[in-house]
């Protein structure tokens, strides 16, 4: 019986997603935003490619959020603030020391790991395993604190790093920003590295074991607090890496982190909470649908947020585990 409901929800989700991707095209045709010529197809391809590139970066920091949730059942609402912090760290290294934003990753990632470990030691260790509301409130407070500290130091001014401003021409009328491609390649590389670390390395396996069942992991001789720390450090590093890649593409200010937290949420709900590959796929899917909406629906850019968070709500209703999440007990 349960098995049947399970399969049914899968089909419903598939149906919903197909519908979600079809709607922009439908509205586009109805409102004359779709032209049936080669030029338009090239424009559409550009938009989809850009969406995929974007999604790769979103996915990377969403993966950090999903890791923490999977291992500790903690929803870290300060995750976006770590992304923002990453953007500022990169900006500082670029403008004050003159280090290339990508090379700066060698410096920012260790710093991020330490920040993550500290957050775990000082805040999260105290609340892990307790009532679910406490960690939510603690990370919420942490996020606000980070925002205001950064605001006090850097003011609310928007900043941006001028990096690889030109286009890479793929064909006559398909162009993609170099900084986008660089970001996508870096994000994919980091995400895949972390994936294999989790699959193959001893510590990675221990992290997965803890995620599956902390008590059993403990009985097997895994020091789960040790694992918590590494997970937090890893998640912070992923967020900061995301921030670095965001900083070379977009402007940012202390408040932009909130946006990334929400985005990461929508992604992991879609992909399945706690599921690594799910988050990667969810990231790309969300970014692509956002692009399609913006491209084809009249005044679509103003509706992107409605659509992505609406999608999150629908997925929770139809199939709370999302695309690939583990069964809820």
């Amino acid at each position: 019986m349960q098995e049947k409901a399970e399969i049914r929800s899968k089909y419903w989700l598939a149906l919903f997603l197909v519908a979600a991707y079809t709607v922009p095209f439908g509205i586009g045709i109805y409102t004359d935003n779709v032209f049936f010529d080669l030029q338009w197809l090239a424009d559409l391809t550009t938009v989809i490619l850009n969406g995929i590139m974007q999604g790769g970066v979103y996915a990377m920091f969403a993966v950090g959020l999903t890791l923490i949730f999977g291992v500790m059942r903690i929803i870290n609402v300060a995750h976006g603030e770590l992304v923002m912090l990453g953007a500022y760290l990169t900006w500082m290294f670029f403008f004050y020391v003159g280090i290339d934003p990508l090379l700066a990753l060698f410096l920012t990632l260790p710093i991020a790991f330490v920040i993550g470990v500290l957050i775990q030691k000082l805040l999260l260790n105290a609340v892990v395993g307790g009532p679910e509301l406490t960690p939510l409130l603690i990370t919420f407070g942490l996020g606000l604190t980070i925002i205001h500290i950064v605001e006090a130091i850097f003011t609310t001014d928007y900043r941006t790093i001028p990096y690889a401003p030109d286009a890479l021409q793929i064909s006559e009328s398909i162009n993609i920003g170099r900084s986008k491609i660089i970001s996508f390649v870096m994000a994919s590389f980091i995400s895949i590295s972390v994936f294999f670390f989790l699959k193959i390395h001893r510590i990675g396996k221990a992290i997965r074991a803890t995620a599956q069942n902390a008590d059993v992991a403990m009985v097997c001789g895994i020091n789960i607090f040790h694992i918590y720390m590494i997970t937090s450090g890893l998640a912070a590093a992923l967020a900061v890496a995301g921030g670095a890649l965001v900083s070379i593409q977009f402007g940012f200010n202390p408040e932009t982190g909130v946006l990334y937290t929400l985005q990461a949420f929508a992604i992991i709900v879609l992909g399945g909470r706690g599921h690594y590959i799910g988050a990667l796929i969810g990231g790309v899917m969300l970014a692509v649908i956002e692009s399609l909406i913006s491209f084809m629906i009249p005044n679509g850019t103003a509706m992107v947020e409605i659509a992505s968070y609406g999608m999150m709500v629908f997925v929770l209703l139809i199939r709370p585990r999302g695309l690939m999440g583990p069964k809820e007990n």
Partner: peptide, 8 residues
Amino acid sequence: TDFTALLQ
């Protein structure tokens, strides 16, 4: 922050 689709 991302205007790609709008500009396209």
